[in-house]
Amino acid sequence: MTDKNMLLAVFSDLDPAAHAVEKLRELGLGDEHLNVISGIPITEAMMGRPHQWTNVPRLALGGALGGFLLGAYLAFVTPTTYPLNVGGQPVIPGPPSVVVLFELTMLGMLISTFVGVFLDSRFPSYTPKEYVPEISDGRIAILIECDPAQEVAIESAMTALGAESVKHAEAQTL
């Protein structure tokens, strides 16, 4: 899709933006051609957008499993590489193993969650992106990918719905 245009419609309020999404869909733009950029977390439902896929839960679960396995290795395997009697306790201590398992499971889960955010969001990424600083002032922007032919129609529709501005989105250094 070399000849697609990127438009950025900026709204100051939630409701017009939601209507705009609806309108754009009516104009034949699929959800995959739209993206909503906002300064506060707006749920997909508010905007009438499809549910966003996120891998973070799976990664978290995987991390938890990894952490658990690492914990199990520390708790159950490492004592046997050089078995030592300490205070008559078994080589592989019972309750203390629970502590180790718990801590490492949590650590694994939390680290992978954190890393998951990075992976899913492609952080860090310092390449130029379509963005306007007003977004972090509370504006809601809709990033529209459309055929050049549709551009005028979309622009007028957006303006009609109360967009503060509709312009060609140019990738800029953030």
Partner: peptide, 11 residues
């Protein structure tokens, strides 16, 4: 697992 003669039970 390495062999050892460490008792499992304190008793």
């Amino acid at each position: 697992m390495a062999k050892h003669n460490i008792p499992e039970v304190k008793a």
